[in-house]
Each structure stands twice: as C-alpha cells, then as structure tokens.
Design a protein around this nucleic acid. Structure first.
Lengths: 323, 323
DNA sequence: TCCTGCCCATAAACCCAGCTTATGCCCTCA
DNA sequence: TGAGGGCATAAGCTGGGTTTATGGGCAGGA
C-alpha cells in the first residue's frame, strides 16, 4: 500500500519555502471567523434577514445577531446593513461573503470526502481511487452525486493502481479510478479526464521569461524537482522523455515539490490539478513545452464485463467527459 | 458607487438551484472540524509530532492531543499514528490533510482580503480594484506580497472603473485595477491578466453534447442567462456580438447566474474566474465557441505619468504576466 | 388611527468545547 | 540507567456561543 504520499516528507521544504511572515499571529484561526459564522453570513446574504438565516441554521435570532456582530468586530468591517425590514450586505460585506463562500465550498468538499472515508461498511457505493483522483476530483464528484441522489452513501478507499484493481476483482469495490499509462489486467475502463503535467518555475527563474517553448531535449537535460521514482507523475515524465528525467531533488509529496519550486530551487514538473492558487497568484509560472505532451489519462475502471450499474453508474455518468 | 453586486439578488435562484439535500444536517460546520483544528492537523503533518505542532501554534501538547483526538472522533477516521517517537499521518489522514489544506488556503485568502478591507487608514499601500479582481485575484496577490514584504499594510477599496479612477486621481489610492474594454481617461495602464468569458450549460443541456463549436450567430440568437445590463461581463458580450445578446433571465450577481445555470435553466455566459469547482465537478460544462472571442483585459492603472513606486511597484510586479 | 407582524438589539443565565496545569508511562539513545 | 522527547489522562477553569425574555422601530391592513 505504498505510503508514497508521506506527509512528513514536507518538513524541510515547507520551512524552506516562502512562509516568511506566517508565524506572525501564530495561526490564522484567530483572524478568520469560524466556519459556522461564515456559513451564517452566506445564509444572511441569501435570505436577506438575520432571523431567517438563524432559522435556517437551526439557531435563534439573537444568536445569529450576536455572531454576525462579533464577526464584524473581529474583522473590523461592517458587513450588513440592518433595517427594520431586513438586512442587506454592505459593499464590503458582499466582498467578504464572496471570499467566505470559497472557504465554505472547500469545507463542503472536505466534508464529502471525509464522509466517504468513514462509512466503509454497508454503503451503497464503494469506490476505490488513486491518490490524485481521490484528492482533487472525487470530492467534487461526490458533492454532485449527493445533489442528484441524496441518499447514496459512498465509501472511499484510496490506493495505487494495483490496490484499486485488487479491490475491484475481489468484489470489495463497485467502481475504481486509476491514473497512469496502463490499465490493470482484468479491468475495463473509460477515460474520465486527462491530467496534464506542467513545467513550472518560480517567477524569478530564467525560464519564466522565455518566449520560445521548451524542447524535450532541454527538459531532459535540466535537473528538475520531481516526485520520487515510481510515482505516477514520474512515470509519465520518464515515458515522455524516454526514461531520461534528471532529478535535482526527489520529494515524496506533491506539496513538497510545490513548496520547493516556489522557493526558487528550480523547475518542477507537476500535475495541473495540484496547481490552482499558485498559478493564479503567480507564485509559480508555467513554461510552455514545444514537442512534448505530458498527458495522462484518468480512467474509471471495473471488472471486465461487469458494467457498472446502480449508484456506480450514477457516479460514472457524472464523471464521463472529454474535458 | 453602483451596488451592482447585490447579494440579495441571489435569493430565488440559489433556492431554485440544486441544493437538494443540503439542508439535511443543517450546516456543514457541525461535520467539519474548525479551522483551528485543521490548521493543527497541517502542522502535525508538517512537523511530525503533536507536541511540536502544539508549540508552533502556541498551545500546550495536551490541548493538541485532545483536539486531534476529538477530530478523529468527529470524522470517524484515524488520522495519525502515534508512537513514542512522534506522529505520522495514516493513509486516510494524508488524504484528509490534503483536503484540509484547501480549506485553510481559502481561509488564508479570506484573511488577506479582510485585512486589506479593514486597514483603510495609514496603510502603506492603498489599492482600488474592480469587483471581479478584488474577489478572485487580489487575495492571492496579497498573500504573495505578504510573503515578499511582510510589513506592507495594504488597504483595499472595491468599486467600478469610475470609482477606481476617481480614487486614483484624488490621490486616495496608490494603485488601481480595472476590468473592461476601455481605460478611464487620465490613467496609464498595463494589462495584468485576461479574463475569458465562457459559455456554460448544465450537463443535461443539448449544447453540452455538441461537437461543433458554437457560432456567434447561434449565440446571439439564443436567450442566455446573463448578468444585468451595465455589468462588466455583459458589456464584453454585447460588444463581441454587436449589442445583440438576448437575455433569458437577468441576474444581479455572478453567483446567481451560476446557480441558475446549474439548475438547468439554460446556457449562461460567465467569467472563467468564477468557474472553478463547477467545471471540475461537471456541474457545468463549457461550450466551445467558433468565431467569437470573449476576452477582456484586466489592467493595473495609475495616474498618467506617475509610475507606481515603492509598495505599489512591488504589488504590480507580482501581477504582471501574460497568462 | 391602532393593531398585528416582522425585523433587530439587549440583558441575564447557562453550557460545554477547548484550554492549562499536573502527572504518568513509553520508548530511545548516550 | 538516567535523560529527554513523545503521548495520554485527569481535574479545574474560562469564555464564546447559546437560549429565553423582553423591548423598540417600521410597515401595512382594518
């Protein structure tokens, strides 16, 4: 069950990376309202009244009033305009609410995932998925599934391709998801998404200012920050370059690779799924590639011949796409 | 100061949209650990020990121990393997930690934004930005800026292009950001990013299954879910189609448009910045366009001749990119 | 005009989650 | 074998968030 996604591996590099002033207030939790408060704010925005929002969340009106007020005190910003006819967001409140919505959405994904991790027994749909898929894609799918079929209890088991295959063939999972170049024997599959690997550097790196795309030769000749040998991304890269990728550093988790690249250690190769924030905040920039395609297919898999039915089919139909 | 981003506008459509089983547990906050607990989990993952994590967050070891334990109880999953030599994440714990990281990152963006909203007075860098930029891009930039120059206090004022220009020209802001087709008179500008508008539908819509790209004519002929007239996205769309966009519904917030599209009311036109989760979870799918380009430039602006210096220059250099 | 309904604020009392302090046990390494 | 780092448990405290109870403002219908 390769413990490749080791978390302690991050240690040095997170420290090395640019978390400069972070230890300042020692913990963001004191500066950001709790999830319950953010949720309340969203409800107020949506319903236009403290009381209604309170009712929706199953608390009393004074509780909501006090909670919003203490949030305003904490943030130092007036969030809602109270009136005897209801409450509207102020301009600043609207902005804060938008930011809050993103926090709550991340929390919903967390919840969907965690719930699937727990159920384990007697669930109607047992999914086995590779790490990348479980981490980035599955929570969203589960939220969508819950919207369509609210009473489908899902259980999730994450592991590598071999483990996924094993579960499926033993009848211990109803649907699997794997990444990688080959499909395990005994399984049928459908491509569900593509994961593109991207070359990134810190904005200061010379490659960040290149205009000409990078050739396969150059990429192969340059030492890169990489996941360890045997990892999914490494396999794809090695295959695309003909087994030639030269590691500058090898790290055991995607997070560590990201942090190391951000700190300017060198160019890194990463799944585009792992790079959200970093790209849009320009902590990292992409380097265009000329003659290399670092794609890999993400596949749904099931035992040969046994087409998914029932809840498994529902989930599968959510994920099928060419995008 | 157009209150165009009205939040109460969402009311009907959020309700109409697919928030089917959501009211179930009435509030996600009871099912997701608080931000402080998630942060603690990240620290444990990074530092490899409950005690060290506790120290970093300024609490005692028993507090950390108990908090992790209660989180495990709440989630029904063992998160860390304790040993007399330290603590490592379990496999499930690693996954949960990855999900938690995304929540905490969203909270960091929230914090960066909220802090800028508060300062207002005596800050070293006063920024005026349009709504879209303030909502989606600025928090990331502020985080990056804080990493580089930890002691730059930033204040933010959000408004439309005219308001941004006014502030800059009155010397009440040091740097502005606007979206839209034209640059207000009296300001110099640099393109900082591009915002692409995208046509999206619910997966069930006929357009979701089209193979042929959509022509401008077809787009103009079809009633669409749109922001209200005068909004930034509407201006771009009207310009691209020659003032012809036909509204199916007009809504006053991006969120409302999204929700309406998800619920299957019809095709919508939205900024790609607004569509993260929805696309990857396939709650919405994009429709390719043939002969229309719905781009708009996002620009940094400043009073003609007065090139930004100091902190404003720092921020500007973070954002300059052709990506 | 008054009354009823919906809205929000304030005050007082309560409860429990999470904290600290104080121990104890386990393991490893010198 | 003692020291140090790591975790768990127990007891006691505190404060934020809650409820119940009440009051006041504004609208709209009788």
């Amino acid at each position: 069950m390769g413990r490749t996604e080791s978390a302690t591996g991050n240690t040095e590099h997170e420290a090395a990376a640019g978390r400069g002033g972070e230890t300042a207030g020692s913990g963001i939790a004191h500066r950001v309202p709790e999830l319950g408060a953010l949720e309340l704010l969203l409800a107020v925005a949506r319903l236009g009244s403290l009381g209604r929002a309170a009712r929706e969340l199953g608390i009393t009106q004074p509780a909501a009033s006090s909670r919003i007020r203490s949030m305003e005190r904490q943030l130092g910003v007036a969030l809602v305009d109270r009136s005897p006819r209801g409450s509207r967001l102020t301009d600043e409140g609207a902005l804060v609410t938008d930011w809050a919505r993103r926090v709550v959405e991340a929390a919903e994904a967390f919840d969907a995932g965690a719930q699937a991790l727990r159920d384990r027994r007697d669930s109607r749909l047992r999914v086995a998925a590779s790490m990348t898929i479980a981490e980035y894609l599955l929570p969203g799918w589960l939220i969508a599934l819950r919207a369509q079929r609210p009473d489908t209890a899902v259980s999730l088991l994450a592991g590598n391709s071999a483990a996924v295959a094993e579960r499926l063939l033993a009848g211990e999972a109803d649907l699997g998801f794997v990444e990688g170049l080959s499909v395990p024997v005994g399984l049928d599959s459908v491509v569900v998404a593509r994961d593109r690997l991207i070359v990134v550097t810190a904005p200061g790196h010379p490659w960040a200012r290149r205009r000409a795309p990078l050739s396969a030769g150059e990429l192969a000749a340059t030492p890169l920050i990489l996941r360890e040998e045997g990892s999914g991304t490494r396999q794809v890269l090695d295959a695309a370059l003909g087994g030639l990728a030269r590691p500058l550093i090898e790290l055991s988790s995607t997070t560590a690779v990201k942090a190391s690249a951000v700190s300017g250690a060198g160019p890194a190769v990463l799944s585009e799924l792992a790079l959200g924030e970093e790209l849009s905040a320009r902590r990292l920039v992409t380097v265009e590639l000329a003659d290399v395609r670092l794609d890999r297919a993400l596949r749904a898999v099931w035992p040969t011949g046994h087409r998914p039915t029932g809840p498994a089919r529902d989930l599968l139909s959510l994920t099928r796409a060419f995008h």
